[in-house]
Design a protein around this nucleic acid. Sequence first.
DNA 1: TTGAAAGCGCTAACAC
DNA 2: GTGTTAGCGCTTTCAA
Lengths: 340, 340
Amino acid sequence: MTNMTIYDISEKAGVSIATVSRVLNGSSNVSEKTKKKVLDVIHQYEYTPNAFARGLGLNSMNTIGLLCADSSDLYLAKAIYNIEQLLRQNGYDSILCCSGYELESKKKAMNLLITKKVDSVICIGSNYIYEKEEDNQYIVDAAAQVPVMLLNAALDAPNVYSIVSDDFTSMYEATLQLIHSGVEDILYFYNSTSYSGKRKLAGYRVAMEENNLLKSGNLIQFYTGSHEDIHAMANQLLKAQKKGLKFNAVIASDDNLAMAALKYAQLAGLRIPEDFSVIGYNNSLLATCSNPELTSIDNKLETLCQHLIVTLMGVLGGNEMPKKTIFSGELITRGTTPKK
Amino acid sequence: MTNMTIYDISEKAGVSIATVSRVLNGSSNVSEKTKKKVLDVIHQYEYTPNAFARGLGLNSMNTIGLLCADSSDLYLAKAIYNIEQLLRQNGYDSILCCSGYELESKKKAMNLLITKKVDSVICIGSNYIYEKEEDNQYIVDAAAQVPVMLLNAALDAPNVYSIVSDDFTSMYEATLQLIHSGVEDILYFYNSTSYSGKRKLAGYRVAMEENNLLKSGNLIQFYTGSHEDIHAMANQLLKAQKKGLKFNAVIASDDNLAMAALKYAQLAGLRIPEDFSVIGYNNSLLATCSNPELTSIDNKLETLCQHLIVTLMGVLGGNEMPKKTIFSGELITRGTTPKK
DNA sequence: TTGAAAGCGCTAACAC
DNA sequence: GTGTTAGCGCTTTCAA
């Protein structure tokens, strides 16, 4: 029998609703005898408390809001999965909201989550933080209500906690390594000016400039099309080459773009890695699918997620927690870069 | 100012809470004048109704539960994304639960959703339906409470609605086409015995048997490892070949497995498609990443999702809706199969 | 250790 | 067209 109330149970068990409530919430002030009596009835009727009523009283549903631009993005999807699991292990449920990439729709999604009385919201992906300070106001506003966790992005504001991978250093070192192996005309291929997007670009840029290799601004190529349209990406590289741009390597801000670089090389008849090198980012499934397999930067997503949840649980538990945590990435060398 | 109640608003606007409630819910029985007055106050104070209180009264939160085994699966993630968007367009929110692949954890996740008083639950992916009838009881039980929607799976039970792609026919025709182009030793590579998994296998099997080509049971290879471990998959094929199994084509039950087949061909030094053909399933991002690009079956995920939502909205609106809807897939021919 | 009762914020039936 | 009021099911003081 379902849809029973606490009154039904109290009646069947011959106690008051307060006692039932105490048993339900594990209060210590109940005698073992009555506790057992109540529990028996509860199990017998498979009673489960009404979450709304509980929420109304407590103003919380033990639910965390998950915000992500696009759950079909390989990287974000993986993050969602990890976070979801970890939350459940900690007794929390999650509500997912796919907000899309526009600021306005992000604001809307954020509000929706807040309306739902989530205990915190986790922004998954660096695209939630913008360059202009004013564009991040919606995060600050939300943080006035509940703690806001940022995965792969950072913002210095009250009640906002950032967990990031050190994209700058990862990219810097990957670029340097490629340079040291003798490759000089390295094109940077990216599609996001988000927090992490800028950090990555900076890592590449600094490494190149330190070696006086950033000869042309065209070596930095921004792609604006669909995240899944490998052909469009590859065409952009092809076009750049036809315009006379010289490059014999591509460092990409994600593995999708790197796949396109591989495709470009194939169309241009270049041998990998002899004539042409490619480095991706995220170390996703794509990296082991391609031929040759893709050298890619692993930014330790699982570690980030774990730490995010640890931090969140600390915050919800009323503890002082670090406002920003930084992890290091790691270059996974495979077949698209020259062997040392 | 946040955390205001309907009482605060009614006071400021000089009306009763009932009138505020009416304005909130768009009831027609309010004069334009008072309506505007109330709306002004609401906007001024940025008041938003408490979702719990509303839920308590209505016993609904306009929320749909999404059940999916693993949101990091490329295919499932895409489905989630589509469904999420469509639901929001229809004024519904969604709660995602990643259940994992074990029956027990699926039952738990299903119960959690029901406890949350969702208005319906959508099971995303064929793995929610099992061969044994008793293993599907949890679906039947859930359907006693709220309508259950099945994406890519089917179950004949009250209040359960199935939206499926005709996997049997898709696979049958793809196999036939490969046979007609002169390929005979076709290996079937799969990793799921779910509803749709069985239908796909059957399509292959019938096509092969009709042509007397299913010479060895070993031509049907079941893979049990991780969905993401391309190397393990490829190794299984390599091992089969070394054991003397003869095959010059692989039809896979998803694109991941097909990627592994491509990798196998490369390791075995086979030319594609001259010596070796591959057909995948899902027409995912992977299909355009590989080299050569993968011939794959598109099962029209977006169409399925759209129809699922249309059906769900019908059901929630109290209309009679079809219990089972079937769509056709389409073979997208690319570089891994012989040109006609 | 237990019970009675006052909310929590909203909706909807009913009265005016 | 508007107001009054009785729930919705639970948690939590406060008394006993």
